[in-house]
Every structure is written in structure tokens, then in C-alpha cells.
Measured scan of single mutants.
Amino acid sequence: MLDDRARMEAAKKEKVEQILAEFQLQEEDLKKVMRRMQKEMDRGLRLETHEEASVKMLPTYVRSTPEGSEVGDFLSLDLGGTNFRVMLVKVGEGEEGQWSVKTKHQMYSIPEDAMTGTAEMLFDYISECISDFLDKHQMKHKKLPLGFTFSFPVRHEDIDKGILLNWTKGFKASGAEGNNVVGLLRDAIKRRGDFEMDVVAMVNDTVATMISCYYEDHQCEVGMIVGTGCNACYMEEMQNVELVEGDEGRMCVNTEWGAFGDSGELDEFLLEYDRLVDESSANPGQQLYEKLIGGKYMGELVRLVLLRLVDENLLFHGEASEQLRTRGAFETRFVSQVESDTGDRKQIYNILSTLGLRPSTTDCDIVRRACESVSTRAAHMCSAGLAGVINRMRESRSEDVMRITVGVDGSVYKLHPSFKERFHASVRRLTPSCEITFIESEEGSGRGAALVSAVACKKACMLGQ
């Protein structure tokens, strides 16, 4: 009897593995994704193909990295998701002549009506938060230079001027797309009239992360975010950046690689679950690469896999709870928690219980395998993109072996128990001629924006502006 049951459990697990095998990517698959990513990057950089390229390769006008001589107080704003952060950054000489960066910050959550109302409502709310922060720190009387981390696709015309191309991540505030974001912020500050600010720089969160990590390690020339969304930036040779005049030196390019796949480059790798996630998203047909990796989508992918296993009578005796059938019910943090389970399955059992399920031991094991399959594919897909960037940098610099540091931020990278190990191992397999160091950014977005502002202020002083 026991043997029969054991055989049935083994057969069930084997069927589960057959279904989950769809998520496995072979090294040849990853090399294919990497080569296609490089081709799209090239198209994004070139003037004649930029418009139709899915990977936009947006110039950021960040050319210099901090040298350690900029000092002063800077205000930093960070808008990239449902939370908005205001930070005071003091850049100065530390002990023994070292450079020191001290920060104080406060988080504000953005109400739904500000995210989806008008641009005026959104930026009025942001300036209200700045006003509140300055009151708390008794700094209303000071006109501070301000660095703005704005983590949406922007076409820069200068370091302090950028046109919002399109909202992502659930934002829909009308009247912002096609307009200068810094102008919208300046107008809102003017409307309030109770404080003055000098907006000197606007950067993407990947750029802010790279600059913040450069402060720790001067070989950091790539910034990457794996959180709600997924994106990367890197220092490109100016001669390859056709959208900006000049051939000397390097400029940081914001790849906006989340949109890779929007022209069909990933079609052969998309599964039924991916198509369902895409169809029910706020932007169907867009940001397809990001939807395979980002935390906004990972939990939902797992939920759809679990429903398939229920329908195949391989999980929960073929019956799903009402909660499990509800879109968004299986949160991405559950994926991390399930994979963090120590082996007694308590954590998995508790999560499934909150979803109205009474799982068996085998159910718990199957749910864990589903989570591992989805998150491992995410790590491997992400590795193909980064390997594409790094191999490109090595080739354009004609280096036999390139040493490089990548600064990384984002909740999936930082909080998932195995993502970074799987990701690092896969990147290294795909970049055999590179020695890569990964560092995690601390308060990256805010500190990085302030350091970019410090560079901009120093330049302005040198130019006598």
C-alpha cells in the first residue's frame, strides 16, 4: 500500500517536472537572447534605426563620474514606483581627507489618484512632500541643488532636461508624456511658492545606482535594477552614441532593455503563462523582457503555473481556492519566502493557508518547484541581457580580458534567497573573457542622484555659470 502511494507521488512529481521543464533555458538559448539583445542595442544607438529599435539606448548626458572633490548639501528625489523618497545628502571631506556622503531620508507613498490623475496632481503632491521634508529638517530658507531620480523612459536633451516617452509600472498621470519632466517639477514648486529649489540633474535609477557604486569602486561602469521592473545602464564610447554629437570619451546610456521583445525577438521563448500575464497587464505587448524578470510579474506567473497544475490534477487534489483564482493573489514576496523555507515546509504551508488552501507535504514541495522554475528562468533571462552589455563593452574597448564592476539594486536581487547566485553564475558562463565584480548599492537611487548633481554643480562652477 505504502509502495503504491510512494509510486503515485513519484509519478505525480515526474509529471510536474515535465510541465515545469518549459521554463528551462539551455545555454544556447541564452546565447541567442544575448546576441539578439546586442543587435537591438546597436539599432538603438544608431541614428537611422533608433526610432524602430525596441531597446532605445537613451543617452543620459552623464559623462563624468564623481571624483571626490564636490562638497555641499544636496536634496535628492526618487520616483520610480508607488513609494517616493526625499533625501538630504551631505557631501563633504571625511576623516583623513576621505570623501564622505551622509544621508537623511523619508519615504512617502503615492496615492492612487496622483498616479493615475493628471501630471499637475502628481507633481503638486511631490512638491508637497518636499515642503514637508524641508519643514522637518528646518531647511526651507536654503535654496538647495536638487537631483531627481526618475525611473521611467526619458529622452534627455541635457542633464536637466528630459522628455517622458511613456509611463510604465502602473503610472498613468495624463499630460506628462511628451513633456519635460524637470519643467513639470519646477512648475509645481513655483505653484507652491513656499520654498526654492535648483533642479540641476535628472537621472534614471540605473544611472543613480551606477554612480553610487562608483563611489565604492571606481571600476563600476554598469548599473542595473532588478526590482519591480528590470533595466540597466553602462558607459558607452561616445563615438557609438549617434544621437549625441561628439566622439570623445564616454557617456552613460540608459538601455531601457525592459522593452526588448516588443518587436518579436522573444516570441519563441514566451510561454502561455507569459501571454496571460501580458494580456492582463496595463501595457499589453510592451516591456516583454521586463515581464519575464521583474517583481511586478513574478508572483503572478507562479500563480498561473499553480492553476495549470491544479487543472492537471497534480496539486491540491485538483481544487483551487477562490483566493488562488484571484489575479495578483500570489505576491512576489511569497516566491522569495517559499524558496527561503528551511525544509520543514512550515513557511510554505503558512503562505498557502493564507490563500485558503490546506496543502499536503507533496503540495508544498511542488509549489516550491514552481517558484524555483519561474525565478530561475528570470535570473537566466536577466543574465543574457547583462552578458550582452558586458561583452559589447569588452569588444568596443578591444580588451582581451576586461575587469568590470556592476552596481545592482532592486528588491528581487536583494531579497530573493537564490536569485543573485543563479544570476551571477549564468552571467559568468556567458562572459568567459571578463572578470566581473557585483556590488549592491546602498540607498543607491538617492545618493547617486545627489552625486550626479554634485558633478553638475562642479561643472557649472568651472564653466562660470
Rank of each mutant, 00 (worst) to 15 (best):
D3E: 08
R5T: 10
M8V: 07
A11T: 08
E14F: 10
I19E: 11
L20H: 05
Q24Y: 13
E28C: 08
K32G: 10
R36M: 05
H50P: 03
M57C: 14
S64H: 15
S69F: 12
S76W: 04
D78W: 03
L79D: 04
F84G: 04
V86D: 06
V86I: 10
L88S: 05
V89Y: 01
E93K: 01
G97A: 13
Q98V: 07
T103N: 08
K104C: 11
H105S: 15
E112L: 11
A114N: 12
T116V: 12
G117Q: 06
E120Q: 13
F123L: 01
D124A: 04
Y125N: 03
S127V: 14
C129S: 04
F133S: 06
L134Y: 00
K136Y: 02
H137K: 07
M139V: 08
P145S: 15
F148I: 02
T149M: 00
T149N: 03
V154N: 03
R155D: 07
H156A: 03
E157N: 01
I159E: 02
L165R: 03
N166Y: 13
T168E: 00
G170L: 09
A176N: 03
G178T: 07
G178E: 01
F195D: 03
V200W: 05
V203E: 06
V207R: 04
T209W: 00
E221Y: 13
G223Q: 00
V226L: 07
V226H: 06
V226T: 05
C230Q: 08
V241N: 00
E242T: 14
V244Y: 00
G246I: 15
E248C: 06
M251P: 15
V253S: 01
T255H: 02
E256I: 00
A259E: 02
G261R: 03
G261S: 02
D262P: 13
E265T: 11
D267Q: 13
Y273L: 07
Y273T: 15
D274C: 02
D278Q: 04
S281A: 13
G285E: 09
K291H: 00
L292G: 06
L292V: 10
Y297V: 02
M298C: 11
E300Q: 08
R308W: 10
L309T: 10
N313R: 12
L314R: 13
L324A: 11
R327K: 14
A329G: 14
Q337K: 13
R345T: 12
L357P: 06
P359W: 11
C364S: 10
C364M: 10
D365H: 13
R368Q: 11
S373V: 13
R377F: 01
C382N: 00
C382E: 00
V389A: 06
V389L: 15
I390S: 06
I390A: 07
S396P: 12
S396W: 05
E399V: 08
V408N: 04
V408A: 09
V412N: 03
S418Q: 13
F423R: 04
A425P: 13
L430K: 04
C434Y: 10
I439A: 11
E442A: 09
A449Q: 02
V452T: 14
C461Y: 12
M462K: 12
